[in-house]
Design a protein around this nucleic acid. Structure first.
Length: 472
RNA sequence: GGCGGCAUAGCCAAGCGGUAAGGCAGAGCUCUGCAAAAGCUCCAUUCCCCAGUUCAAAUCUGGGUGCCGCCUCCA
């Protein structure tokens, strides 16, 4: 088996993956702040990690995936104050929507979805530890992490403390000892959600929840920490500082960051407002198509979105799916018996493709490369059938590969016929049969009319030497 | 200003030292009553520019140029 290599933001190199615990993979992916609809920029990491997780599973690993919800946050509080709706109701609603959207994208649910609001105790304990160890200090009900107390600060984002101080663009909180210090705990203001703590009523700062919750669910030094590359600084940098200052152990072994989704060369972002929501896309496109689009570029590269992009991509996607569904059809009346030389040769090639896909997946999860190989496989199998190849072993092998890589791991192939009930099936079979008679009588006018009218209804008829087939 | 990343055909996109995968679009052809699907052929002497290292560079080094992200909430 190929060794799995992963690009680690921390070392800026591809490294061989060595699990913390033999046969197991632990993953923490930064989730969303639930105060508005999920958009493509949220879909990307979810789909990418869904694929990574499924790939690991195919390699026999037991995977634990944690994705948090930051449901205590300024934005949510502001929205709550504007609308009068309790903050947790707002976040609760968007959490539900987020989960539903991800379901619609075929993303398997994480093992844990911890929320800040349900982990205040753990967070307070972690802050206390940091205060005890002199990595944090309290001032007027706030608690700050003292960045200078952690010499390795900046190791993830490659920043120098001095440069960061100069880069400070906003007014520095007078309670801070140093401009780069950041809040672990914020004292309560009027009308804000607040919890009891040793420093009075207050709430957690950003960053600290991920440290507390990853520690709780995955322990020290878990395998992967993921998220968008916009989180590298300050979020992940601060997580590292807090967690490692508290435990003395590395937070995670591999830091994996996905590239942004851009709209007109600009990052898609809630605060900019240039957002394409998942809900809107899923209305128009199948989850397999959307995943195909998201996975057609390597996860670390920026991904461009524009109107019509999905439609463009869909043509290639259709070729892949058509090939697979035609393949399944051929399989239902395949031959067994002795394998010819031609059969053996194709079987060989398929075996090579399998190896190549393994190489591609294990080389930093190169899904774009896998897609390329899948298309090469499409040609190979189409040529095989074109040359009247019909052996069950060959067709089955191809089917298995499409199933494993295209469907089980990538989730880009619709394997089950988009199905309706049996009545539609039999009615269409009847129509096809009647039309067959018309064609035999050379009544092409009527036969074509049937085909056009069905096309209007979204049903495609294809006349092949083996008879007519229909597709929805 | 600091840090990180990217630049490959009309478009999308692999490639990571051994002589340019794949998809879309386009051109021609085969099959076919016509369509569709499928197949075949063609479509980057060249990888932003300039130096250098090497027998060999899209791939490494140095210097430019352009774009993106982060330094403020962000996937």
């Amino acid at each position: 088996m190929n060794k799995i290599k992963v690009y680690n933001t921390l070392t800026q190199k591809k490294e061989e993956f060595i699990p913390r615990k033999e046969g197991e993979v632990s993953i923490y992916v930064c989730g969303v702040t639930p105060y508005s609809d999920a958009h493509l920029g949220h879909a990307r990491p979810s789909v990418v990690w869904d694929v990574i997780r499924k790939y690991f599973r195919s390699r026999g690993y037991k995977v634990t995936l944690v994705q948090n919800f930051t449901d205590v946050d300024d934005k949510i509080i502001v929205r709550s104050q504007e609308t009068g709706i309790p903050a947790l109701d707002i976040s609760g609603k968007y959490i539900e929507e987020y989960l539903r959207d991800m379901d619609e994208l075929g993303v398997e649910r994480a093992d844990f979805y911890p929320k800040v609001s349900e982990h205040i105790t753990e967070i307070v304990e972690l802050v206390e530890t940091l205060v005890e160890k002199d990595h944090a200090y309290s001032a007027n009900g706030d608690v700050f992490f003292h960045v200078a107390s952690f010499p390795e600060y900046g190791k993830l984002s490659k920043q120098k403390l001095d440069e960061l101080r100069q880069g400070t663009r906003f007014e520095v909180d007078p309670n801070k000892r140093d401009a780069t210090d950041f809040a672990l705990w914020k004292s309560a203001k009027e009308g804000e959600p607040a919890w009891e703590s040793p420093w009075g009523q207050g709430r957690p700062g950003w960053h600290i929840e991920c440290s507390a919750m990853s520690l709780k669910y995955l322990g020290e030094g878990f395998d992967f920490h993921g998220g968008g590359n916009d989180l590298i600084f300050p979020h992940h940098e601060n997580e590292i500082a807090q967690s490692e200052a508290a435990t003395g152990e590395p937070l995670a072994s591999y830091w994996v960051h996905n590239g942004m989704v851009n709209l007109k060369d600009t990052k898609m972002s809630k605060s900019i407002g240039n957002v394409i929501t998942v809900g809107r896309l899923i209305e128009k496109h199948s989850k397999e198509l959307l995943r195909f689009y998201l996975l057609s570029t390597h996860y670390r590269t920026e991904l461009e979105y524009y109107d019509g992009k999905i439609e463009e991509v869909s043509k290639g996607w259709k070729r892949l799916n058509d090939a697979v569904s035609n393949l399944q059809e051929s399989l239902s009346n395949a031959d067994s018996g002795e394998l010819s030389e031609k059969d053996l040769a194709v079987l060989d090639v398929l075996h090579d493709f399998e190896q190549e896909m393994e190489v591609a997946f294990s080389d930093d999860f190169n899904t774009a490369r896998v897609l390329g190989i899948l298309f090469e496989m499409v040609r190979e199998i189409n040529v095989y059938k074109h040359n009247r190849g019909t052996h069950e072993k060959v067709l089955q092998k191809a089917c298995d590969l499409f199933q494993l890589y295209g469907s089980d791991i990538l989730g880009i192939i619709q394997l089950e016929k988009a199905n309706q009930d049996g009545l539609v099936d039999s009615l269409l079979d009847l129509v096809v049969e009647l039309r067959e008679d018309l064609r035999k009588d050379k009544n092409f006018g009527l036969a074509d009319k049937i085909r056009y009218r069905l096309a209007d209804l979204g049903i495609t008829l294809e006349d092949t030497p083996q008879g007519t087939r229909w597709k929805v």
